[in-house]
Nucleic acid binder design. Sequence first.
DNA 1: CACCAGGAATGTA
DNA 2: TACATTCATGGT
Length: 209
Amino acid sequence: MSLQKNKILQCYKILRSEYWMPCEQWNLWRKHPKSVKEKEEVIIGSILTQQANWKNVEKTMDNLKNAGKCTLAGIYGLRGKNKNKLAELIKPSGFFNQKTEYLLNIADFFNKCGGIRKAGKYPLDKLRKDLLSVKGVGMETADSILLYALEKEIFVIDEYTKRFVKKNNLAEKYTYNYLQELFMESLPREYELYQDYHALIVVDGKKEP
DNA sequence: CACCAGGAATGTA
DNA sequence: TACATTCATGGT
């Protein structure tokens, strides 16, 4: 088992040397530390990227910024009768009706927490559980928010990660929780490292099948 | 006109 | 608990 852990760390080093340049478009997500505004943008982005390609997500982010609504408070202000306006703004990233609800759910959630700063002070396991109870937030989105926005030490598992693990023969099981534990036990508990590794896996995964 | 895109929710064994 | 199926849209 410790053999596989070493491989996981080795694979990171290889990726990092292979992609020594900062990966474009992951600049904001991998940036640290982030301002509150930037963190909120990442939270919003984590919902918008669900089943959407990044180009279209960027169009949506631009729409929101130009409208001055690329903040949780901005989103929250578009609840109720203004919902259709939010839907219109996020249209380029697809599934806009569904994502409108999801964004409002998230905005409402952090609102009830008293903002992302206070939310960040919750015990990590409780915060994760609470996030997962928000409709529209599954494990991947919850962990993306925790890792990239709230800068918590938690590894994100997605399809790219699973493919990466298979391709490099890093495990036999490919369930979310198993892989998450495996990565976290194999690496130093540093959110910067987790961010960088996951971003590299995605960048690498997009290059070839 | 298919098929993809940086999932989630729901159903089933 | 762990897979399998369904859902929901713009872009290419």
